[in-house]
Design a protein around this nucleic acid. Structure first.
Length: 195
DNA sequence: TATGAGATCAACT
DNA sequence: GTTGATCTCATAC
């Protein structure tokens, strides 16, 4: 088993549509808890569905900063969602992390996600952006933190991955853009890809 | 299997 | 005042 290769910040210094599919199969850990990334969505600053589309606000400010940092925002007043900022500074593009295949710290994830669901299978732990943040303990405290520093740990995938594109979920603008990417055949997706 | 309500907050109109 | 890059639970088909 080769040693894992850590993703460096310059990995994110590229177009978001190149970075997003390459994240499929990479491993994301927060304080040692996490797993393989199986689903992401790309949000480009020219995209009406992106938070950065209308320019900087206090919420999306870190999207306009340097790439390779976390952008965390409150969704529907309830959940947190985790993004990775991409491209050059000021381009305000990001990748939304939508689902993980849990591999590390399963007990911690179950504890954070609640006892009433403890008996449910592991697919329910991280199969959606809000669930994933709850399971990994990601909150706005992580907003703006570099991805190559603690508590984050990001390992490149080993070997190749079969990546399938699809239409993004939960948006009402630019719904035609196939900028959702998933690991082909994974049981841990938030929703199946139709192919 | 599918649809609907409720939770709860910041940005936007 | 309305609207989400959501999730869970309840009720209907």
């Amino acid at each position: 088993m080769p040693l894992p290769i850590m993703l460096r910040r310059n990995f994110f210094d590229r177009p978001v549509l190149k970075v997003a599919p390459e994240l499929i199969g990479a491993t994301l850990l927060v304080n040692g808890v996490g797993g393989r990334i199986v689903e992401v969505e790309a949000y480009h600053h020219t995209d009406p569905a992106a938070h950065s589309y209308r320019g900087p606000t206090s919420r999306n400010a870190v999207m306009f900063g340097p790439p390779g940092v976390a952008y965390v925002y409150r969704s529907y007043g309830i959940h947190w969602c985790l993004n990775f900022v991409c491209e050059e500074e000021g381009s305000a593009s990001a990748v939304l992390i939508r689902a993980l295949e849990p591999t590390e710290g399963l007990a911690a994830m179950r504890r954070r996600r609640g006892q009433s669901r403890e008996l449910a299978d592991d697919r329910l732990l991280c199969s959606g952006p809000g669930k994933l943040c709850e399971a990994l303990g990601v909150t706005v405290r992580h907003n703006g933190i570099p991805l190559d520093k603690m508590p984050f740990e990001l390992r490149a995938r080993q070997g190749s991955a079969r990546v399938v594109p699809g239409v993004r979920i939960g948006i009402t603008k630019a719904m035609d853009k196939p900028w959702r990417f998933g690991l082909m055949g994974s049981r841990f997706l938030s929703k199946p890809f139709k192919t």
